[in-house]
């Protein structure tokens, strides 16, 4: 038996909007530690990893570990039927081939339930070791989204370079080139508006902007984003989900032929 009650149901709506364009079908894994997902995009160059810890749910019952295969477009359609302030409960029996999403209005005067068929999805699970990154940039998530959007009107790839002067996002295309430099500004009043750079070594990597733009769909989840880079690893773009966990995107770099 699985029963997960999430008071801030809008979080789940935002998570689905943030991953459904990157991944079509995925297994949601549920265990006593929480609700998680790991899935690669169809090209096998980007990966999304979600964790919603059990203690972030108002009620979390998971009698035995379950993996529930779902089409993310279908889940997204279904969650669009929930209002932003609805409480969402996910229910499934241990051997069931369906999952039920229940939406309760905050005043408890409207209760809707939607049953969805589960899918059998064979997905490759990747072992991602904890790593020390050469550079970690933390910046406002809206600023990062704006930069990715602006650069993609000029080029297809972005070079992200971190030095002690700041982080530089560069692109070039048929019409010309662009560079955007963000400097550290940790003295701003609100911490979520700060750009901070932890640099052990300077690093410069090239990525496809199409994927970066797709990652920025997670912007509504968090006011800040962290970008962790090492020259020998995929970049990690992480959006923290308040009090509950994270949504991380991994993207393999492009290298010069």
């Amino acid at each position: 038996m699985l029963e997960l009650r999430l008071v801030q149901g809008s979080l789940l709506k935002k998570v689905l909007e943030a991953i459904k364009d990157l991944v079509t079908d995925a297994n949601f894994d549920c265990s006593t530690s929480g609700f998680s997902l790991q899935a690669m995009d169809s090209s096998h160059v980007a990966l999304v990893a979600l964790l919603l810890r059990s203690d972030g749910f108002e009620h979390f019952r998971c009698d035995r570990s379950l993996s529930m295969g779902m089409n993310l477009n279908h889940v997204s359609k279904l969650l669009k039927c929930a209002s932003n302030d609805d409480i969402i409960t996910i229910k499934a029996d241990d051997d069931a081939d369906t999952v039920t999403f229940m939406f309760e209005s905050p005043r408890q005067d409207k209760i809707a339930d939607f049953e969805m068929k589960l899918m059998d999805i064979k997905s490759e699970h990747l072992g991602i070791p904890e790593a020390e990154y050469q550079s970690i940039v933390k910046m406002p998530s809206q600023e990062f989204a704006r930069i990715c959007k602006d650069l993609s009107s000029i080029g297809d790839t972005v070079v992200i370079s971190v030095t002690k002067e700041g982080v530089k996002f560069s692109t070039r295309g048929d019409i010309g080139s662009a560079n955007i430099v963000c400097r550290q500004n940790s003295t701003v009043d609100k911490p979520e508006e700060a750009t901070t750079i932890q640099m052990k070594e300077p690093v410069s990597l090239t990525f496809a902007l199409r994927y970066m733009n797709s990652f920025t769909k997670a912007t509504p989840l968090s006011s800040s984003v962290s970008i962790s880079m090492s020259s020998d690893l995929p970049v990690v773009v992480e959006y923290k989900i308040a009090e509950m966990g994270y949504l991380r995107y991994y993207l393999a770099p492009k290298i010069e032929d």
Binding site: A208, D232, E256
Partner: peptide
């Protein structure tokens, strides 16, 4: 010319 690396180059399949 840049070529895209696959994730499997970095992470092992479990």
């Amino acid at each position: 010319i840049f070529i895209q690396v696959y994730l499997a180059v970095y992470f092992a399949t479990l």
